[in-house]
């Protein structure tokens, strides 16, 4: 497609992707920062998260934020997966991932040689990172369900090794998601045209 005066430049992210992406980012940030406060109430690692970066003011407030944002994360995530699978976006943009190609792209990315010419096409590193983010959220939701309602989801509880193990899994999921977010935001700042596309669609 060649953009001309009469036709606008091609759409990179349709409106539903943009709405769901930013809803997800909102839900994730609320869950992350309120979750840190909840963790602080009873830490199981020699790690205390500075209260200033947490949300909620006290344990009860953090729990209110956490159990409100979880609905946004889950409903929005299910919608994204449904529309993304049915409409073919997930298959087109996030798939396939081939290990040798991924390795090559990763090496190129680290050397700063990977370009972002066509924003409609994700390179292998982007694909792997986005699939990781989706799976990470699935793990967070599953382990979160076990923590919230451990008696009501016996199968899930058993699969996750019981309540106490589910706590560690949930924490690891948080750490993985936070790690992804840091890299993701850094890359966004490095290539601001991607942010423009995620905000405006083009």
């Amino acid at each position: 497609m060649t953009p001309s005066l009469s036709s606008p430049p091609p759409l990179i992210h349709p409106i539903w992707v943009r709405l769901m992406h930013w809803s997800n980012a909102l839900a994730f940030l609320v869950l992350l920062t309120s979750g840190w406060r909840i963790y602080n109430a009873s830490p199981f690692l020699p790690l205390h998260i500075p209260a200033d970066v947490t949300l909620g003011g006290w344990l009860g407030g953090a729990l209110l934020w956490h159990f409100a944002a979880m609905w946004l994360l889950v409903v929005n995530g299910l919608l994204y997966l449904t529309v993304g699978l049915a409409g073919g976006r997930l298959r087109e943009r996030l798939w396939p991932i081939r290990l040798p190609l991924l390795w090559q792209d990763l090496v190129d990315a680290l050397r700063g040689r990977l370009n972002h010419v066509d924003l409609r096409h994700y390179n292998q590193v982007q694909r792997a990172a986005y699939v990781f983010a989706v799976l990470d959220i699935v793990v967070l939701v599953m382990s979160g369900l076990v923590l919230w309602k451990s008696v009501q989801f016996p199968l899930l509880r058993t699969l996750l090794g019981g309540y106490e193990t589910a706590r560690r899994v949930h924490f690891a999921g948080m750490a993985g998601g936070f790690g992804f977010l840091c890299v993701h935001v850094l890359m966004t700042l490095r290539f601001p045209q991607t942010l423009r596309a995620m905000l405006l669609g083009r």
Binding site: A41, D52, L55, G56, G57, W58, L59, G61, L64, W65
Partner: peptide, 20 residues
């Protein structure tokens, strides 16, 4: 109860703490 957390806010205190 919370032994690590500070006392909960009173009904009037908003959820966001002053540092926040």
């Amino acid at each position: 109860a919370a032994s690590v957390e500070p006392a909960p806010p009173t009904a009037q205190t908003p959820i966001l703490s002053t540092p926040d």
